[in-house]
Design a protein around this nucleic acid. Structure first.
Lengths: 348, 348
DNA sequence: TTCTCCTACGTCAACGTTGACGCAACCGGC
DNA sequence: GCCGGTTGCGTCAACGTTGACGTAGGAGAA
């Protein structure tokens, strides 16, 4: 198999000895710094190659004056969630351009876990962090920020001052969806949303309310279901809605999995071609369902790119006042959101 | 905003000075080592707290004898791909239990990029790596392995000796799918697969061939389309198949996106209830389509857990011969795979 | 010629931490 | 009272690298 488990990695000293120069000269050659003649450079390069020398970045960053680890931390809610994964990928791409690697973790929306991961990152002296803040109190984040760690919040803004953020047009786009449904003639538009501890959920609900107000519709409390965690909860909530004496003729589902659950319930009753539905956040195969699901699509790569751009600016020393970037979501019409209300409902 | 950009992180020396002890004693307290009296421990803890001291793991791992960075590298093809993302998440969960963080990167199935990321990880002295090998030559991986870096390959086995791997029952499960289709009476079963440079694609094709052989069916070359990269290629390939004089009555699609493309083409022609389809790899909403898509589901969390278990064993010093773990995939019947051939085809 | 400046190296210490070891004070046993 | 062992600290050097600085030798100007 293997000559032996772990042999010692060669160091600059080994290279220096072989090339018959000082370690400082090796350092100069490795880092392409001036002060080494062409002949020496070649000798050192050859020695490094033959030993398989690779610099030790941890030792280097310990000694260097800028103290950079060429590593950033990414702390999202759940890396296996497609939204988070796409975001991570976008940040990673941008990081790679800077020769920076990404330490990634899932906070599970748990403040304690987030705090733990935060100190884990700090202990490794990452150059900066891109964080999806957990629902509750953000004091761990704030403390970290106050220590001077460059930080950018994505998807949800900070509850404290002085920190950059990148979010989507949660409120405006939600309003837009409700307005579209109302324009078709819908009067009873239901709202199904995720946990209200999440900022995005609250924003989308507010957008829903604005949409109703904007079109002169009245809010019917029995048409509002919040704090639905996962598709199953959404499915039962939808069933409850459809059992009402006056069921909704249209639904706005404010999150991915909620949309899926609602679709399932509609389909079970054969109502998926009769009740209009607009969902927040696109998902794969949304166009393959019958009918195609109309959604508000977030520009996830743009979110990630923007977050990465901000964090690297800060790491680069940018001291300007905090930016709160907002990336627009787009309404993608596929059929489910264009279903008109039944004629009986528009009667005299 | 901020008192000033980046103030210096407090060090052990600062804590030692405040607590009026030596740095060594601080080290003992921080690491819960014996040799410090209760009173001193309290003094040091108080000092550390009041300064907001946090140990510097890079300095620590430089000096420690075991030289551990408490970090592993994960190198997958594309972190935004749900399969990779779920795998990453499973590895991450296991890593967290060991207090280990994950450096993640996407190799894009590009050997040069993989080599680059590999050295990036090595430079940071990760304790081990979990890698999805790129299609072509694996010499960069092999070199890394020969240096003694603990390594586990996932999804695709090594082309060299002495390295652990975790894969799925690609071949056996593919055969099983074909056998099920043949048992329903299908005679013309098409194969649609991803790039043949990928080991998984080749295995699944072999399984297809085995399935044909096992049931006494003949291979019709015009029913085989390989090297389909993405849903669009799969869609046109499917269209070509359906235009044949004797089109297939069943299809085996050997990858996620290929399945989606094939579904799209079938649906465009209104044949989705007539042509049987079994896909490799599950995907969200597969059950919501009409008909539900029958798939071979990989146990992704199990793959990830196993990979993590292996890598941590190796890091822990396990010297036993290499393991090649194989996690079974399951056939999930949802409708599309249970469509019988048209009666005209089974005639005399 | 002598003075200055530049190039191409080398020496030394330090980054923050811990392993090896030293040493004083105290304990118990005889 | 002396001896051996333990407890509770401290001192020193080293991990692999680089910043600050030193210096020998040659080129060029005066």
């Amino acid at each position: 198999m293997d000559s032996r488990g772990a042999r010692r990695e060669p160091t600059m000293r080994d290279v220096a000895a072989l090339a018959k120069v000082s370690t400082k000269t090796v350092s100069r050659v490795i880092n392409d710094l001036p002060g080494a003649g062409p002949e020496v450079v070649e000798r050192v390069r050859a020695a490094a190659r033959s030993l398989g020398y690779r610099p030790n970045l941890t030792a280097s960053s310990l000694r260097r004056s800028d103290r950079r680890s060429a590593t950033i931390g990414v702390l999202f809610e759940d890396l296996s969630n497609p939204f988070d994964a796409a975001l991570l990928r976008a940040v990673e791409d941008r990081a790679r351009q800077n020769g920076v690697l990404v330490l990634a973790g899932s906070s599970e929306d748990d403040p304690d876990l987030q705090r733990e991961l935060l100190t884990s990152l700090a202990t490794r002296r990452v150059d900066g962090m891109v964080v999806m803040a957990v629902g509750g109190h953000q004091d761990a984040l704030q403390q970290e920020r106050e220590r001077g760690t460059p930080m950018v919040l994505v998807d949800r803004p900070p509850t404290f001052d002085g920190t950059d953020s990148v979010t989507t047009t949660n409120r405006d786009s939600s309003r837009e969806a409700v307005v579209q449904l109302a324009a078709l003639g819908h009067r009873r538009i239901a709202f199904l949303g995720d946990r209200q501890t999440l900022w995005t959920s609250r924003e989308r609900y507010t957008g829903y309310l604005e949409g109703l107000a904007h079109t002169g519709l009245t809010l019917h409390h029995e048409l509002v279901h919040t704090d639905l965690h996962g598709p199953d909860a959404a499915e039962t909530a939808t069933a409850t809605l459809l059992d009402l004496d006056q069921p909704p003729t249209a639904m706005f589902t404010a999150q991915n999995l909620v949309t899926v659950g609602a679709m399932r319930a509609l389909r079970d009753r054969g109502l998926h071609h009769r009740v209009a539905l607009i969902g927040f956040d696109d998902f794969p195969l949304a166009d393959m369902l019958e009918p195609g699901v109309t959604v508000l699509r977030q520009d996830v790569p743009a979110l990630g790119r923007k977050a990465a751009e901000l964090i690297f600016n800060r790491i680069g020393g940018d001291q300007s006042p905090p930016t709160h970037a907002v990336v627009p979501a787009t309404l993608v019409q596929r059929g489910s959101g264009e279903i008109p209300p039944p004629v009986t409902d528009t009667g005299p």
